[in-house]
Amino acid sequence: MAVKLKFFAMLKGLIGREEAELEIPGEISMAELKTIIKREYPVLADLIDKRGVLVSVNQEFAGNEMTIKDGDEVAFLPPFSGG
């Protein structure tokens, strides 16, 4: 099973890419996915925990309890600054 990861704005700059594929060990929660992400991308660890980075699954905001399934598109969204 795998999910598609998307990174925007400053996050994209930090890890040097906009998209990535990530293998997951079956259906997991967003909280579990975040733990894997922090291990895979240490540079994001502090941001994910402390700086109000929101997460979406298939283009809708998602909380830590959300179940992540095969083929989901999970995006990490730093604080917005549109307008």
């Binding site: 925007f8 704005a9 400053m10 979406s56 604080p79 917005f80 600054s81 549109g82 307008g83």
Partner: peptide, 27 residues
């Protein structure tokens, strides 16, 4: 609507100044 746009719409602004480029965080 403009307040809500700044709060919930995934759009990001990057400013280029004499000191370089920076992604804006606050709104």
């Amino acid at each position: 609507a403009i307040a809500e746009l700044k709060r919930v719409v995934p759009i990001w602004k990057k400013e280029t100044t004499g000191k370089g480029e920076v992604w804006v965080e606050e709104h």
